[in-house]
Amino acid sequence: MLKRYLRLHLSNLGGAIGRLFRQPVGSLLTVLVIAIALALPAGLKVVVNNADVLSDSWEGAADFTVYLKMDVSEQAARDLAKQIGERNDVADVTFISRSEALDEFRTRSGFGEALDALDENPLPHTLVVRPRGGAIAEIEPLTQALNELPETELVQLDTEWVARLRGMLLLLGRVVDIVTVLLGLAVVLVIGNTIRLEINNRSTEIEVMKLVGGTDGFIRRPFLYLGIVYGFAGAAFAAGLLLVALVLLRSPVAALAELYASHYTLSGLSLEETLVLLGGGAALGWAGAWLAAARHLRAIEPS
Protein backbone atom coordinates (compact mmCIF):
# COMPACT_ATOMS: atom_id res chain seq x y z
CA MET A 1 0.00 0.00 0.00
CA LEU A 2 2.74 2.40 1.02
CA LYS A 3 4.90 1.26 -1.87
CA ARG A 4 2.03 1.83 -4.25
CA TYR A 5 1.54 5.37 -2.94
CA LEU A 6 5.22 6.14 -3.18
CA ARG A 7 5.30 4.84 -6.73
CA LEU A 8 2.28 6.90 -7.75
CA HIS A 9 3.73 10.04 -6.21
CA LEU A 10 7.13 9.46 -7.78
CA SER A 11 5.60 8.95 -11.20
CA ASN A 12 3.52 12.11 -10.72
CA LEU A 13 6.64 14.05 -9.75
CA GLY A 14 8.50 12.69 -12.76
CA GLY A 15 5.54 13.51 -14.99
CA ALA A 16 5.42 17.08 -13.69
CA ILE A 17 9.13 17.64 -14.32
CA GLY A 18 8.76 16.12 -17.77
CA ARG A 19 5.86 18.45 -18.51
CA LEU A 20 8.01 21.47 -17.65
CA PHE A 21 10.64 20.37 -20.13
CA ARG A 22 8.10 19.65 -22.84
CA GLN A 23 7.41 23.38 -23.21
CA PRO A 24 10.77 24.74 -22.10
CA VAL A 25 10.28 28.39 -23.10
CA GLY A 26 6.87 28.83 -21.54
CA SER A 27 7.90 26.97 -18.40
CA LEU A 28 11.11 28.99 -18.10
CA LEU A 29 9.18 32.27 -18.31
CA THR A 30 6.78 31.17 -15.59
CA VAL A 31 9.65 29.94 -13.42
CA LEU A 32 11.49 33.25 -13.90
CA VAL A 33 8.44 35.28 -12.87
CA ILE A 34 8.18 33.16 -9.72
CA ALA A 35 11.94 33.44 -9.17
CA ILE A 36 11.87 37.24 -9.33
CA ALA A 37 8.86 37.40 -7.03
CA LEU A 38 10.71 35.20 -4.52
CA ALA A 39 14.15 36.79 -4.98
CA LEU A 40 12.86 40.23 -4.00
CA PRO A 41 11.80 39.39 -0.41
CA ALA A 42 14.74 36.99 -0.05
CA GLY A 43 17.12 39.73 -1.22
CA LEU A 44 15.61 42.24 1.20
CA LYS A 45 16.02 39.66 3.92
CA VAL A 46 19.71 39.41 3.07
CA VAL A 47 19.99 43.21 3.25
CA VAL A 48 18.35 43.27 6.68
CA ASN A 49 20.57 40.41 7.88
CA ASN A 50 23.68 42.27 6.83
CA ALA A 51 22.49 45.53 8.35
CA ASP A 52 21.77 43.69 11.61
CA VAL A 53 25.31 42.36 11.67
CA LEU A 54 26.63 45.86 11.01
CA SER A 55 24.51 47.50 13.70
CA ASP A 56 25.55 44.81 16.18
CA SER A 57 29.19 45.65 15.56
CA TRP A 58 28.29 49.31 16.16
CA GLU A 59 26.78 48.50 19.50
CA GLY A 60 30.18 49.45 21.06
CA ALA A 61 29.43 53.01 20.05
CA ALA A 62 26.77 53.12 22.76
CA ASP A 63 29.31 54.42 25.26
CA PHE A 64 28.80 57.35 27.62
CA THR A 65 31.28 60.14 27.33
CA VAL A 66 31.35 62.04 30.62
CA TYR A 67 33.07 65.44 30.40
CA LEU A 68 34.12 66.56 33.87
CA LYS A 69 34.18 70.11 35.12
CA MET A 70 37.41 71.97 34.45
CA ASP A 71 38.15 72.36 38.15
CA VAL A 72 38.21 68.64 38.84
CA SER A 73 41.74 67.48 39.51
CA GLU A 74 43.26 64.51 37.78
CA GLN A 75 43.41 62.54 41.03
CA ALA A 76 39.77 63.23 41.77
CA ALA A 77 38.89 62.21 38.24
CA ARG A 78 40.80 58.93 38.58
CA ASP A 79 39.04 58.21 41.87
CA LEU A 80 35.72 58.92 40.25
CA ALA A 81 36.54 56.56 37.39
CA LYS A 82 37.30 53.81 39.88
CA GLN A 83 34.10 54.54 41.77
CA ILE A 84 31.95 54.39 38.63
CA GLY A 85 33.77 51.26 37.49
CA GLU A 86 32.49 49.48 40.61
CA ARG A 87 28.84 49.88 39.64
CA ASN A 88 27.38 46.58 38.43
CA ASP A 89 25.71 48.13 35.40
CA VAL A 90 29.09 49.35 34.16
CA ALA A 91 31.33 47.11 32.15
CA ASP A 92 34.36 49.34 31.79
CA VAL A 93 35.54 52.86 32.47
CA THR A 94 38.39 54.48 30.58
CA PHE A 95 39.98 57.59 31.99
CA ILE A 96 41.30 60.11 29.46
CA SER A 97 43.26 62.89 31.10
CA ARG A 98 43.09 66.36 29.64
CA SER A 99 46.68 66.12 28.40
CA GLU A 100 46.01 62.78 26.67
CA ALA A 101 42.93 64.25 25.14
CA LEU A 102 44.90 67.22 23.91
CA ASP A 103 47.57 64.99 22.35
CA GLU A 104 44.97 62.90 20.62
CA PHE A 105 43.13 65.95 19.42
CA ARG A 106 46.36 67.49 18.18
CA THR A 107 47.30 64.48 16.08
CA ARG A 108 43.81 63.72 14.83
CA SER A 109 42.21 67.03 14.12
CA GLY A 110 44.98 68.82 12.32
CA PHE A 111 44.37 71.88 14.50
CA GLY A 112 47.74 71.38 16.23
CA GLU A 113 49.05 74.84 15.52
CA ALA A 114 45.83 76.51 16.54
CA LEU A 115 46.01 74.66 19.87
CA ASP A 116 49.57 75.87 20.37
CA ALA A 117 48.26 79.41 20.20
CA LEU A 118 46.13 78.79 23.29
CA ASP A 119 47.56 79.53 26.69
CA GLU A 120 46.17 76.53 28.41
CA ASN A 121 44.62 73.17 27.56
CA PRO A 122 40.90 73.81 26.90
CA LEU A 123 39.98 70.15 27.24
CA PRO A 124 38.54 68.64 30.40
CA HIS A 125 39.26 65.24 31.90
CA THR A 126 36.98 62.69 30.29
CA LEU A 127 35.55 59.34 31.34
CA VAL A 128 34.35 56.88 28.72
CA VAL A 129 31.84 54.63 30.43
CA ARG A 130 30.75 51.43 28.73
CA PRO A 131 27.48 50.12 30.17
CA ARG A 132 26.97 46.41 30.71
CA GLY A 133 23.54 46.21 29.10
CA GLY A 134 22.59 47.59 25.72
CA ALA A 135 18.90 48.29 26.10
CA ILE A 136 17.66 51.83 26.70
CA ALA A 137 15.79 50.78 29.87
CA GLU A 138 18.92 49.19 31.34
CA ILE A 139 21.08 52.25 30.92
CA GLU A 140 18.49 54.77 32.06
CA PRO A 141 19.50 54.71 35.81
CA LEU A 142 23.16 54.95 34.83
CA THR A 143 22.43 58.01 32.69
CA GLN A 144 20.73 59.65 35.61
CA ALA A 145 23.51 58.77 38.08
CA LEU A 146 26.20 60.12 35.79
CA ASN A 147 24.26 63.32 35.21
CA GLU A 148 23.79 63.87 38.93
CA LEU A 149 27.50 63.63 39.81
CA PRO A 150 28.73 66.99 41.11
CA GLU A 151 31.87 66.64 38.95
CA THR A 152 29.92 66.21 35.73
CA GLU A 153 29.84 68.99 33.21
CA LEU A 154 28.18 67.07 30.38
CA VAL A 155 27.13 63.49 29.61
CA GLN A 156 26.94 62.43 26.03
CA LEU A 157 25.39 59.18 24.96
CA ASP A 158 26.18 58.15 21.44
CA THR A 159 23.31 55.72 21.16
CA GLU A 160 20.70 57.87 19.61
CA TRP A 161 21.74 57.23 16.08
CA VAL A 162 22.16 53.54 16.83
CA ALA A 163 18.65 53.53 18.25
CA ARG A 164 17.43 55.33 15.14
CA LEU A 165 19.21 52.80 12.93
CA ARG A 166 17.69 49.98 14.97
CA GLY A 167 14.30 51.57 14.55
CA MET A 168 14.80 51.84 10.84
CA LEU A 169 15.94 48.24 10.63
CA LEU A 170 12.88 47.17 12.57
CA LEU A 171 10.75 49.12 10.12
CA LEU A 172 12.61 47.62 7.18
CA GLY A 173 12.11 44.18 8.70
CA ARG A 174 8.39 44.84 8.85
CA VAL A 175 8.42 46.06 5.26
CA VAL A 176 10.18 42.84 4.27
CA ASP A 177 7.45 40.86 6.03
CA ILE A 178 4.72 42.70 4.16
CA VAL A 179 6.53 42.40 0.83
CA THR A 180 7.06 38.69 1.52
CA VAL A 181 3.37 38.14 2.16
CA LEU A 182 2.31 40.13 -0.90
CA LEU A 183 4.80 38.52 -3.26
CA GLY A 184 4.05 35.10 -1.76
CA LEU A 185 0.44 35.75 -2.64
CA ALA A 186 1.54 36.80 -6.13
CA VAL A 187 3.42 33.50 -6.50
CA VAL A 188 0.31 31.59 -5.43
CA LEU A 189 -1.74 33.48 -8.03
CA VAL A 190 0.83 33.06 -10.81
CA ILE A 191 1.07 29.33 -10.19
CA GLY A 192 -2.68 29.06 -9.72
CA ASN A 193 -3.23 30.71 -13.07
CA THR A 194 -0.62 28.52 -14.77
CA ILE A 195 -2.28 25.42 -13.37
CA ARG A 196 -5.71 26.71 -14.39
CA LEU A 197 -4.50 27.02 -18.01
CA GLU A 198 -2.96 23.57 -17.77
CA ILE A 199 -6.26 22.16 -16.50
CA ASN A 200 -8.11 23.80 -19.39
CA ASN A 201 -5.60 22.45 -21.89
CA ARG A 202 -6.00 18.98 -20.51
CA SER A 203 -9.77 18.97 -20.05
CA THR A 204 -10.19 16.05 -22.48
CA GLU A 205 -7.70 14.01 -20.53
CA ILE A 206 -9.40 14.90 -17.24
CA GLU A 207 -12.77 13.95 -18.71
CA VAL A 208 -11.46 10.57 -19.86
CA MET A 209 -9.90 9.96 -16.44
CA LYS A 210 -13.20 10.69 -14.76
CA LEU A 211 -14.97 8.36 -17.19
CA VAL A 212 -12.73 5.43 -16.37
CA GLY A 213 -13.15 5.98 -12.63
CA GLY A 214 -10.32 8.33 -11.67
CA THR A 215 -10.88 9.70 -8.18
CA ASP A 216 -10.60 13.45 -7.49
CA GLY A 217 -7.32 12.82 -5.69
CA PHE A 218 -5.90 10.82 -8.58
CA ILE A 219 -6.82 13.49 -11.10
CA ARG A 220 -5.69 16.37 -8.90
CA ARG A 221 -2.31 14.93 -7.90
CA PRO A 222 -0.40 15.53 -11.18
CA PHE A 223 -1.49 19.18 -11.06
CA LEU A 224 -0.42 19.55 -7.44
CA TYR A 225 2.98 18.16 -8.35
CA LEU A 226 3.20 20.54 -11.28
CA GLY A 227 2.55 23.42 -8.86
CA ILE A 228 5.15 22.12 -6.43
CA VAL A 229 7.74 21.74 -9.20
CA TYR A 230 7.02 25.27 -10.48
CA GLY A 231 7.35 26.71 -6.97
CA PHE A 232 10.50 24.78 -6.17
CA ALA A 233 12.14 25.61 -9.50
CA GLY A 234 11.24 29.28 -9.00
CA ALA A 235 12.77 29.24 -5.50
CA ALA A 236 15.91 27.53 -6.80
CA PHE A 237 16.24 30.19 -9.52
CA ALA A 238 15.68 32.89 -6.88
CA ALA A 239 18.48 31.44 -4.75
CA GLY A 240 20.67 31.45 -7.86
CA LEU A 241 19.79 35.08 -8.62
CA LEU A 242 20.73 36.07 -5.06
CA LEU A 243 24.02 34.24 -5.33
CA VAL A 244 24.86 36.07 -8.55
CA ALA A 245 23.91 39.42 -7.00
CA LEU A 246 26.06 38.65 -3.97
CA VAL A 247 29.07 37.77 -6.10
CA LEU A 248 28.63 40.98 -8.08
CA LEU A 249 28.43 43.06 -4.87
CA ARG A 250 31.18 41.31 -2.95
CA SER A 251 34.19 43.16 -4.35
CA PRO A 252 32.71 46.69 -4.25
CA VAL A 253 31.60 46.05 -0.66
CA ALA A 254 35.08 44.82 0.24
CA ALA A 255 36.57 47.95 -1.35
CA LEU A 256 34.14 50.14 0.61
CA ALA A 257 34.86 48.26 3.85
CA GLU A 258 38.56 48.76 3.31
CA LEU A 259 37.98 52.52 3.24
CA TYR A 260 36.51 52.15 6.71
CA ALA A 261 39.37 49.87 7.77
CA SER A 262 36.86 47.08 8.23
CA HIS A 263 36.93 43.43 7.27
CA TYR A 264 33.21 43.42 6.78
CA THR A 265 31.97 41.00 4.13
CA LEU A 266 28.49 40.46 2.78
CA SER A 267 26.82 37.29 3.88
CA GLY A 268 24.17 35.56 1.80
CA LEU A 269 21.31 33.32 2.87
CA SER A 270 22.25 30.73 5.46
CA LEU A 271 21.70 27.07 4.68
CA GLU A 272 18.61 27.13 6.84
CA GLU A 273 17.23 30.20 5.09
CA THR A 274 17.91 28.64 1.70
CA LEU A 275 15.97 25.56 2.74
CA VAL A 276 13.13 27.78 3.95
CA LEU A 277 13.15 29.55 0.57
CA LEU A 278 13.04 26.27 -1.37
CA GLY A 279 10.43 24.72 0.92
CA GLY A 280 8.40 27.92 0.91
CA GLY A 281 8.48 28.04 -2.89
CA ALA A 282 7.28 24.44 -3.10
CA ALA A 283 4.55 25.11 -0.52
CA LEU A 284 3.33 28.22 -2.36
CA GLY A 285 3.27 26.20 -5.59
CA TRP A 286 1.26 23.49 -3.92
CA ALA A 287 -1.17 26.08 -2.54
CA GLY A 288 -1.62 27.76 -5.93
CA ALA A 289 -2.19 24.44 -7.66
CA TRP A 290 -4.59 23.32 -4.98
CA LEU A 291 -6.67 26.47 -5.34
CA ALA A 292 -6.80 26.10 -9.12
CA ALA A 293 -7.61 22.39 -8.91
CA ALA A 294 -10.34 22.94 -6.31
CA ARG A 295 -11.97 25.59 -8.46
CA HIS A 296 -11.63 24.13 -11.93
CA LEU A 297 -11.36 20.32 -11.76
CA ARG A 298 -14.88 19.92 -10.49
CA ALA A 299 -16.25 21.89 -13.42
CA ILE A 300 -14.92 19.35 -15.92
CA GLU A 301 -17.39 16.52 -16.04
CA PRO A 302 -17.96 14.00 -18.79
CA SER A 303 -21.03 14.76 -20.84
Partner: peptide
Amino acid sequence: PRFRQRIGVVFQDHK
Protein backbone atom coordinates in the same frame (compact mmCIF):
# COMPACT_ATOMS: atom_id res chain seq x y z
CA PRO B 1 -15.20 7.05 -9.37
CA ARG B 2 -15.30 3.71 -7.55
CA PHE B 3 -18.67 2.99 -9.15
CA ARG B 4 -17.31 3.72 -12.64
CA GLN B 5 -14.28 1.52 -12.06
CA ARG B 6 -16.62 -1.47 -12.32
CA ILE B 7 -18.09 -0.38 -15.64
CA GLY B 8 -16.30 -0.43 -18.97
CA VAL B 9 -17.31 2.31 -21.37
CA VAL B 10 -16.62 2.39 -25.13
CA PHE B 11 -17.20 5.61 -27.06
CA GLN B 12 -17.85 6.37 -30.68
CA ASP B 13 -14.87 8.75 -30.71
CA HIS B 14 -12.70 6.35 -28.66
CA LYS B 15 -11.66 9.08 -26.19
